[in-house]
Every structure is written in structure tokens, then in C-alpha cells.
Computed example of a mutant assay.
Amino acid sequence: MAIESDHRESDSPYVARVWRGQVSGAGSLTSVATSNWELVFWEDAGTVQAAVRGPETTASTARLIGESESFGITFAHGTSMPHLPIARLVDSEVASPYADGRLFVLRGEEWEIPGFENAEDLVRKLVRAGVLTRDPLVDDVVWGGIAKVGSRSVQRRIANATGLTQGAIRQIDRARHAAVLLAEGVPSLEVVHKLGYYDQPHLARSLQRFIGRTATQLQRRDDADQPLSLLYKIEGDERF
């Protein structure tokens, strides 16, 4: 099975990343954990589908058959849809009741499906219509900022906007960061010290839970039979 993928950053405060992918052949894909939620579009066997997909708290396996193309908008922490409580989306998704090559349905309204380069056009329309909202404190705190409100208020606002606790977000994102470093050839002991794991067994448990790989598999890039979903390096990540 061959997988081609591309992704880019966004200048929208509502968006963390925009990505697209193409799969040919049959096989399995390891979907790694992610603390962000997404709006995803894909075409499979000539049928276009759309869904809001929530954060994934563990690695999982997805079966892929035949040719398919996908495109997604990964939203920044703090971005949410008031009509879809995020707690309902954790480890789950809500499919659009209708989609074709041009339109999909969200909050009972039709919206034009954007492309990889103009995804922010849709985001701006959703913001103007009140479909998307944003709590800037959440993204700031998740990235290491200091809040000017009490800790209980911070934790409540993070949970309301992301469906996860700040601790869960940190664990998932740290494991993803570790996987990228190991794939780049950084020794596992150095990753342990750099990212604040207690020891190598602690790192191993984290990788198995959130990435579905061992450190050795990541270092060898041993994913020919079951490739990983999108992993990327975030420049300037100082949380760990």
C-alpha cells in the first residue's frame, strides 16, 4: 500500500494545520493519537464524505481498501463548535448527513467544500456564521503560557474546548514529539531526557499507547507493512 501526504501551517488562529493525502492499494494504517479535532473530507470509490472527527486518545488501526483521497483541517486548541459539544467527539466522529463533490452539510446548512490551498476561506465563513468559536486562553495555556485566571477555571475551559484535560493533551503531544525525534535518529535515551520522561520504560509505554510503535521501529522507520498517519515536527515547541 502506498501513501502520499502533504501538510502546511496556517495563518488562521483557528487552525493548527491543513493536510491532504492519497492512498493506493489495500492494507492497514496506524492512526496515531492526536489532541486536536478535525474537519475531514475524503473520496472513496467515487463517493465523497465529510465528518467532524474528534481527538484520538490512543493509537488505532484502520483498514484501507483501494484508491482514496482525503483532505482535512486540523483545528487549534481552543477552537470549537458550540452545536457539537467536544466531549461527544473524543475518540469518535459525526458524519455530514450529505456530501458531494462540491457541498457538505454542517449545522443543518450547506457549505462549499474547500481545497488544500483555500481551507481558510471556509474557516472564515464558519466563524462569521457562529459555527466556529475560539477561546484564545486555551491555545495559549496549552503552549505553555501563564493564565490570569484560577487553575480550576483554566482546566474547565480547556476541557470545554478540547474534550481533554491539559495533562492528556501534554501526554499525547509529547509522544508525537518523541516519535518525530526518534524517526530523525535521535537516541531514545536523549529523547527521554529532552522530553521529561522518567526513564526508557516510561517512554516505551507512551509510544505504544499513543503511537502504536516501539522506539526501535520508529528509528528503523519500520512501517512498510502498516504506515503511520500524519506526524510532523512543530518548530518552536518549548513545552517539553
Rank of each mutant, 00 (worst) to 15 (best):
M1H: 06
S5E: 13
S5A: 11
R8K: 14
D11G: 06
V15E: 06
V15S: 00
V15Q: 08
A16G: 07
S24V: 06
L29A: 02
T30H: 05
A33N: 02
T34A: 13
N36Q: 15
N36Y: 14
W37Q: 03
W37N: 03
E38H: 15
E38I: 13
A45P: 03
A51Y: 04
A51S: 12
A51H: 10
V52D: 03
R53K: 07
R53M: 01
G54S: 08
P55T: 03
T58I: 02
A59R: 03
A59M: 09
S60N: 11
E67V: 07
E67Q: 03
S68N: 06
S70R: 14
G72I: 08
I73K: 06
T74D: 03
T79S: 12
T79C: 12
L84W: 05
P85G: 03
I86V: 15
R88F: 04
L89Y: 06
E93S: 08
V94L: 14
S96E: 00
P97H: 04
L103R: 15
F104R: 10
F104K: 14
L106K: 04
L106V: 07
R107K: 00
E109L: 12
E110W: 11
I113E: 04
G115P: 02
F116I: 14
A119V: 11
A119N: 08
D121R: 15
L126I: 00
L126G: 10
A129V: 02
V131H: 04
T133Y: 10
R134T: 01
R134N: 10
R134I: 08
R134A: 01
P136V: 15
V138G: 04
V138C: 10
V138Y: 05
D139F: 13
D140H: 12
V141Q: 03
G144V: 00
A147T: 11
A147N: 12
V149Y: 05
V149D: 00
S151C: 01
R152Y: 02
S153N: 14
I158Y: 01
I158W: 00
I158H: 06
N160A: 14
N160T: 12
T165P: 15
R170G: 11
I172S: 09
D173S: 11
R174M: 13
A175V: 08
R176M: 08
A179C: 10
L181N: 00
L182A: 04
V186I: 11
V186C: 05
S188K: 15
L189V: 07
V191W: 12
V192L: 12
K194R: 12
Y198E: 02
Y198N: 14
Q200I: 09
Q200Y: 14
P201D: 05
L203Q: 05
A204C: 04
R205N: 11
S206M: 04
L207E: 04
R209N: 06
G212T: 09
A215T: 06
A215E: 11
L218D: 02
L218H: 10
R220A: 07
D223T: 15
A224G: 14
Q226F: 04
Q226R: 07
Q226N: 13
L228C: 09
S229L: 00
L231R: 02
I234Y: 05
I234T: 15
E235S: 15
E235M: 03
D237F: 05
